[in-house]
Nucleic acid binder design. Sequence first.
DNA 1: AACCTCTTTGGAAAGATTCTAACTTTAGAA
DNA 2: TTCTAAAGTTAGAATCTTTCCAAAGAGGTT
Lengths: 140, 140
Amino acid sequence: MKYQQQAIEKLKEYDVHPSIQRVMILDYLLSCNVHPTVDDIYSALLKDTPTLSRATVYNTVNKLVEVGLVRQLKDIDKKEARYDACLETHGHFKCVKCGKIFDFKVCDKLILDKKLEGFTVNTKTVYFQGVCPECNKVNS
Amino acid sequence: MKYQQQAIEKLKEYDVHPSIQRVMILDYLLSCNVHPTVDDIYSALLKDTPTLSRATVYNTVNKLVEVGLVRQLKDIDKKEARYDACLETHGHFKCVKCGKIFDFKVCDKLILDKKLEGFTVNTKTVYFQGVCPECNKVNS
DNA sequence: AACCTCTTTGGAAAGATTCTAACTTTAGAA
DNA sequence: TTCTAAAGTTAGAATCTTTCCAAAGAGGTT
């Protein structure tokens, strides 16, 4: 519960009632850099809170996405959606060989096309796929 | 069947046997700019081919994605995956009010971060969410 | 025609997510 | 403190998307 206090403050700031479950889940998302699936979150928190329900995890992450505290990433995984509590604009790179996910910076001003004038952009998702340096070494 | 001939040629070029179903599906993807879901494709083609199976649509789009003729877009829709036959690198903008999806250009060289040196990038996905000019007008 | 391979089909099955209805907790008023 | 209404949680059923599988079909080759 490293980020418990921060989680509570963020929830309040975004007008979401900081229930025990919500704080737990946001704390977990803030503390891990691996972009977990709903099931990852559920399994991890079940140890400490055996009464936790899967539906609560779904409700909570949906709520957090809705208010903008968390980002949903669906392309990364073939089936399950993943969640990321880092709000800074950044890209995700997934290595197709080892499956690892790397975050990288995106200079978002440079992406903008003239065609997007007049559009209000709220969320930016940049997702690359390929082979990471480690796996490139192994195969060469 | 505007793109039927083009579909057949593309399939051959990518070493995919141009069966009736595959041609139909790729033709449909090439002719529509709306990034349909599997169910959209299935429903649309069922009229002309009542014997078409949902599994065939899944098999086909998976095959097309696998060989690189079509791109899968998961983030755009909350549940269903969408498919796009346009191979040029481009971004997708989804208006959260009207649900329309707009394509826009991405100058892909500009996205690259120094951190990505050594990475081999195969696929680039850029996805924005926000409000389109039309919906911006309505609410002001 | 006989044969082989690839494709399609439909239904069953699996997997992910949402719904529902009952139960619990919370915040604020009395 | 106690009451009340609203909000949140729970467990399991239900739904929806996707894949699997075995059988049937189509196309091409000898």
